[in-house]
């Protein structure tokens, strides 16, 4: 299983052997501006390190966001093109779910109750979702200014780059937990869900915002008044 995610500043790739429950190789870079350049060389390196060919991969797992659009599309276009070339099925997972799962693996106990995952949505907003525990999301992911989330959300243990960025607004930031997305967690989560017979998401981007575009007013009159 090859997992990748480009919906956050991280470009993360992991090759996971679900049968043997082990990560064969992985690569993580944090560089919000170079997703397009970094992703394929990372995949090539991961496959090379594991001594496997892309054609041997049985399942592709891709983070579908939410995330800033340009980077997000790199991962989805890549996974979709792999599918087009090789017929390998592509499974989508919410990027925030991967972070929640990673937080669970890093020690955020189920006994701690609900928590919130937030990533940077730019324009002073965060993509966020609430979780009952590391594998149970409460409701759909959303985008908002951190300060608008309401005291009951902001007081929850908070995980992810968006929480760290707005520390202070989020009052219980767990900076010791993974801040960046990891394809390793994404792969393990996907394997777990597929193992339970669950359907994952189609590989379609979660933008959560409409494209910025205004219908222009009529043309500007050029004749001086």
């Amino acid at each position: 299983m090859l997992a990748l995610d480009t919906a956050t500043p991280a470009v993360t790739v992991a090759l996971y052997d679900a049968g043997g429950d082990r990560i064969l190789a992985s690569a993580d870079h944090v560089d919000a501006r170079r997703h397009g350049e970094l992703l394929l060389p990372s995949i090539d390196r991961v496959l090379g390190e594991a001594g496997r060919a892309l054609a041997e991969v049985t399942d592709l797992v891709v983070g579908v966001g939410p995330g800033p659009y340009t980077g997000l599309r790199v991962g989805l276009a890549t996974a979709e093109a792999f599918r087009a070339a090789l017929g390998t099925p592509v499974h989508g997972l919410c990027t925030l779910d991967g972070l929640a799962y990673a937080a669970g693996r890093a020690g955020l106990g189920a006994d701690e109750g609900p928590f919130v995952v937030a990533t940077d949505a730019r324009r002073r907003e965060v993509y966020w979702a609430r979780y009952a525990d590391p594998v149970t999301r409460l409701g759909e992911p959303a985008v908002a200014r951190a300060a608008e989330l309401g005291p009951e959300v902001l007081a929850l243990p908070a995980v992810g780059g968006g929480a760290v960025l707005y520390e202070g607004t989020f009052t219980d930031v767990r900076a010791e937990l993974p801040v960046d997305q990891s394809a390793e967690s994404l792969a393990r989560l996907a394997a777990e869900r597929l193992g339970r017979g669950e359907e994952l998401l189609p590989p379609r981007p979660l933008y959560l915002r409409r494209p910025d575009a205004q219908v222009p007013a009529n043309y500007k009159v050029v004749t001086p008044k």
Partner: peptide, 18 residues
Amino acid sequence: AGALLVGVSAAKAYAYAL
């Protein structure tokens, strides 16, 4: 830029896979 990136990403992955 953003439009080009979709094609470049897809082309790279397609060529690589093949």
